[in-house]
Design a protein around this nucleic acid. Structure first.
Lengths: 159, 159
DNA sequence: TATTCACTGGGCAATATGACCAGTGGAGTG
DNA sequence: CACTCCACTGGTCATATTGCCCAGTGAATA
């Protein structure tokens, strides 16, 4: 579950040059190929590395508008609302949270006008009491993991 | 920029079995290898596929707690706050938004107690006026892209 | 009609892969 | 101390895949 320095270097290398192969990695890291292979297998069976799915940019797909919606749910309607939201392709992720809202989801849309359609579809469901939406303007820090991996590797090595 | 049905199938296949090769994809899709290769190249230079970075699970790394923080920023301090947040490894992403808050970020922490440390570090910066945090309990819909890709491919094909 | 373009189906050398193996060194245990 | 376990090394092997090339086909377009 904890990762050491070599694991960290493997992940960072992989994050920076995803198309790199095991052999090339072993060359760069200065370890035997079998070692990298074994580490990778372990990281994947550990669940540290979930997979290598393609990162698709919704904007390039024609969905340049991103928004976060906070939803308030009628008591007991949680499961139904989840099932409902799961059927909406523009809902990219959904979380249940503490705080004033009950759920929080990430939405994309083709335009600001289209966002209205998406929101209507999202909230057009009985169990949802209220929704408040924040439209994303800029994304100064895109989803990233490298700094955290380096942190985790440092922690494991005892600073 | 728009993708057709074959592009969609390529992306979906790749998302489901990331380790699959070009040759195997061409077999599954019933097209020539060169076609798949050309499509992939195009998708990547288009920016539709950003890359194939490893998906790392913060929980498996020892950071099982996720939270979303909404930040209010002092006028004109935006750039400084961004730079500050970019230095915090536990900040996985950061957006500037419309609405009551000015920014929204995704945080992870080693525990609820540790989350306090992270939040202190995040808001321990002059330009931040107020922060309100929602801790994630469940994640009924993990970050996904397949339904949107299928939608986009359908749209392109004219339903 | 002529041109362009994507796709096909094939072939090529170079490379990476998964699977092995014996040997080494360190950590921890009895 | 001797022993066992375990990860790593450095090597081999057959097989599969890659990147690159080519000529030919068919559809859409000018």
């Amino acid at each position: 579950m904890a990762i050491d320095h070599l694991d960290g270097r493997i992940i960072v290398l992989l994050a920076r040059e995803p198309r790199i192969g095991v052999l090339e990695m072993s060359r760069r890291l200065g370890v035997a190929r079998g070692t990298v292979q074994a580490r990778l297998d372990r990281l994947q069976s550990n669940g540290v590395i979930r997979g290598f799915g393609p990162e698709v940019d919704p904007a390039a797909l024609g969905y340049p508008v991103t928004a976060f919606a906070t939803l308030q749910i009628r008591q007991g309607q949680g499961p139904d609302v989840r099932a409902h939201l799961a059927t909406v392709p523009e809902v990219l992720e959904l979380h249940t949270t503490t705080g004033t809202g009950d759920m929080m989801c990430r939405l994309v849309a083709r335009s600001n006008a289209d966002l209205q359609r998406v929101i209507d579809r999202v909230v057009g469901f009985d169990g949802i009491v209220r929704a408040s939406t924040a439209i994303v303007m800029e994304n100064p820090v895109p989803l990233r993991i490298i700094p955290l991996v380096e942190q985790a590797a440092r922690d494991r090595d005892g600073e």
